[in-house]
């Protein structure tokens, strides 16, 4: 099936929904419209890829478990 490029969302509208798209906040219809745009727009695809990598970096770094030292013993002592 061919896409009528005249009906694609403009870049500035797609970028305005960038974070909501990456966060899964959009409904299926809007997601489909953005995906359709990305299928035809290398610039926006690159931008979304860039921001997606940023979000993965944030999630990876801030979810690293940290050393807990004596805290474990302190909690166990309080429980007993």
């Amino acid at each position: 099936m061919t896409t009528n490029l005249d009906t694609l969302m403009p870049c500035h509208e797609v970028v305005a929904l960038l974070w909501e798209y990456l966060d899964g906040e959009l409904d299926d219809a809007m997601r489909a419209r953005i995906r359709e745009h990305l299928d035809h727009c290398g610039h926006c695809t690159d931008h979304f890829t860039f921001e997606g990598a940023f979000l993965r970096t944030v999630a990876r770094v801030i979810d690293e478990p940290c050393e807990t030292g004596e805290l474990r013993q302190r909690i166990l002592a309080a429980l007993r």
Partner: peptide, 27 residues
């Protein structure tokens, strides 16, 4: 515990406060 401790540190930005918060969470 390591995950919750990390989470508490992110919220409080203070290791002593984070330890107190973590302990209260587990209790």
């Amino acid at each position: 515990l390591p995950n919750v401790s990390r989470y508490a540190r992110l919220l409080t930005r203070d290791s002593a406060d984070a330890d107190d918060l973590t302990q209260e969470t587990f209790l």
